[in-house]
Design a binder for these strands. Structure first.
Length: 564
RNA sequence: GUGCCUGUAGCUCAGUUGGAUAGAGCAGUGGCCUUCUAAGCCACGUGUCCGGGGUUCGAAUCCCUGCAGGCACGCCA
């Protein structure tokens, strides 16, 4: 039951000058529960009716017939305030949650349409650090949110698996590496010899030349070069997948840069045929209005970032026939995306408008910019390890008899890291801070997980099946219960907003709000009481909150342990 | 220089698409565990919503302008 819609209908019958959609958009939720559950400001009507807002409100209140779910309608200085009958409100909202359980908030608006989401995209042979985390968790959450709304999501990890750096790596490996060391230390060893290469190359430029030759060999399909490259890639992927498993991230395709090597010529030809390519300083470009030109090939004829992205977009359109293709990358790449989206448009593809760049703010360290070479980064592995370690300490301190300590420490520690990254609007720049990541109090992942575990604990202790027929909803009309129910009602809408704005933080904020409301309820109202009616009603509320917190955490890719 | 992003409490940030008294968390102080998990709850303070104009019955929110910080602007991705 959609109360807002019902009220809109009611108002629409009185104010025929406005469409139902307009009325819906005018209805708001008052800042204070004492002002009612829904409000309709009459100020905009004043001119049309040539009456004061207060007068309109007063007249309207008189003529409206109160439906049974509304307890009272009041006019307060130009607002029409609607007070929903709290018992009925509790009944409609909570019984729906109890019916739908884990599917509460799901919808079929996506109707199986395909959405491609391009996220994470780390460079092979380089370690995963804080900088890569954002794209990974934001993309992962967007994937889950759209899936919840009935879309068919295709997660693509556009791996950075091609380029001259592999020539360098081969040279470094042949000179200073060994099979044993790489097999033993994985990416760390690859990184070590890669950094070593840069140090040596500063004194000996011939190394660069050698690296270029090896890359050329790769491009020409030389077996030795490609075998090494494939090996490096396998080593990297094994390690990336460990991280992805921990973060609850999955992909449907790992088609990275190398995948498009043999597909770009055709696209360049197409650009040529459509008369879009111009030569400029030896390079080939597409000229754009209001923007710097988009570089397609270098003067040596080789391809560029944009060439690959254009090719990949066309490939994805042909392969997945996407409804939307979403790119989760840094805000700094704004211009790049604007440029090649425009090129797609100029090529005459009307689906250019389905390409969406989802930018996020810059990550830096307290000591300045991230720099792998200068060592000014924190590796993700290190962050997760610290967070898990901290969680273990807290468990030993507060709940030493907990079983499966290791598993729960992992779930909570990682939950803290993910939540920390998803709780603010993605556009904000972030400065990495150990204090913040390792703080588990207040608006944090562990706080939500704790609230969930608390709810689970009560349900476990009660050990009864909640019989829906036996619930007396009039018990759930105290302010704390009403606040929880109000929030419950908003959840489905919140998921849609998160999808529309591509903002996982909406979900994160919401489950914080719900947790706060629940903890207040929990504090104010004893649940496991003698009075069977009171007990069942409150347990039903607890169950509802538990369910929504579980779903909400899942949408962020965070586990919800039942004990912690 | 041009373009994009950001500017709200000491710090980190919300702010329901222009509405009623601008809210949380952290940090600080004090209180609450013989009852369901104290990773919790309650109480206490502070605001030039960056400045200046404008639109409007009404602006943190929209428009113009200025300031501050960040980022991007042709052969990296």
């Amino acid at each position: 039951m959609d109360f807002k819609l019902q009220i809109a209908d009611l108002l629409n019958s009185k104010f025929k000058d406005f469409s139902k959609e307009e009325i819906i958009s005018m209805i708001e939720i008052p800042p204070n529960p004492e002002m009612g559950d829904y409000a309709f400001p009459c100020f905009r009507l004043a001119k049309i009716f040539r009456k004061s807002p207060a007068q309109i409100a007063e007249d309207t209140v008189k003529v409206i017939e109160k439906p049974d779910f509304i307890k009272e309608i009041k006019n307060v200085s130009g607002y029409i305030n609607f007070y929903i009958d709290k018992t009925k409100f509790a009944f409609y909202v909570l019984s729906e949650v109890l019916d739908k359980k884990e599917t509460y908030g799901s919808s079929n608006e996506g109707n199986g349409k395909n959405i491609v989401i391009d996220y994470s995209a780390p460079n092979i042979a380089k370690p995963f650090h804080v900088g890569h985390l954002r794209s990974t968790v934001i993309g992962g959450s967007i994937y889950r949110i759209f899936k919840k709304l009935g879309y068919n999501c295709i997660g693509v990890n556009h791996l950075g698996d091609w380029g001259t750096q592999f020539g360098k790596l081969i040279v470094a490996y042949k000179k200073w590496g060994s099979k044993e060391a790489v097999e033993k230390d994985g990416i760390k060893e690859l990184m070590r010899i890669y950094v070593l290469f840069h140090e040596k190359a500063e004194k000996d430029p011939s190394l660069e030349e050698e690296a270029r030759k090896w890359f050329t060999k790769m491009e020409n399909g030389d077996k030795e070069a490609l075998d090494l490259w494939n090996w490096f890639k396998d080593i990297s992927l094994i390690e990336f997948n460990k991280v992805y498993d921990l973060l609850g991230i999955k992909f449907d395709s790992y088609a990275g840069e190398s995948f498009y090597n043999d597909k770009m010529d055709k696209v360049i030809e197409e650009l040529e045929q459509k008369g879009l390519l111009k030569e400029s300083e030896g390079a080939k470009i597409v000229e754009l209005e209001d923007m710097p030109p988009c570089l397609i090939t270098k003067k040596d004829g080789s391809t560029l970032y944009a060439t690959r992205d254009i090719t990949a977009a066309i490939y994805r359109k042909n392969t997945y026939d996407f409804n939307k293709c979403i790119y989760v990358t840094a805000l700094a790449q704004n211009l790049h995306f604007a440029q090649w989206f425009k090129v797609i448009e100029k090529m005459g593809y009307d689906w250019y408008k389905d390409l969406i760049h989802v930018p996020f703010g810059l990550v830096s360290m307290e000591t300045g910019k991230l720099s792998t070479r200068k060592g000014n980064v924190v590796l993700l592995e290190e962050i997760l390890k610290e967070a898990i370690e901290k969680t273990k300490q807290i468990i030993n301190d507060k709940n030493p008899n907990l079983e499966n300590k290791d598993i729960i420490a992992e779930q909570v520690g990682i939950g803290a890291v993910i939540f920390n990254d998803l709780s603010n609007n993605r556009i904000k720049d972030v400065v990495f801070s150990w204090d913040k990541v390792l703080n588990f109090d207040g608006e944090t992942g562990p706080y939500v997980q704790y609230t969930h575990a608390r709810a689970c604990s009560v349900l476990r202790k009660a050990n009864i099946n909640i019989d829906k027929e036996k619930i007396d909803y009039s018990i759930l009309t105290d302010p704390a219960s009403v606040e929880v129910i109000r929030l419950m009602e908003q959840f489905p809408e919140k998921i849609k907003e998160a999808a529309n704005k591509l903002e996982p933080s909406f979900i994160a904020r919401y489950i914080i709000d719900l947790s706060q409301a629940f903890n207040k309820f929990y504090h104010d109202n004893p649940i496991l009481v003698e009075d069977e009616k009171v007990k069942i009603a409150r347990l039903a509320l607890v169950y509802g909150v538990k369910t929504i917190l579980y779903i909400g955490l899942d949408l962020l890719g965070i586990k919800a342990p039942e004990k912690m």
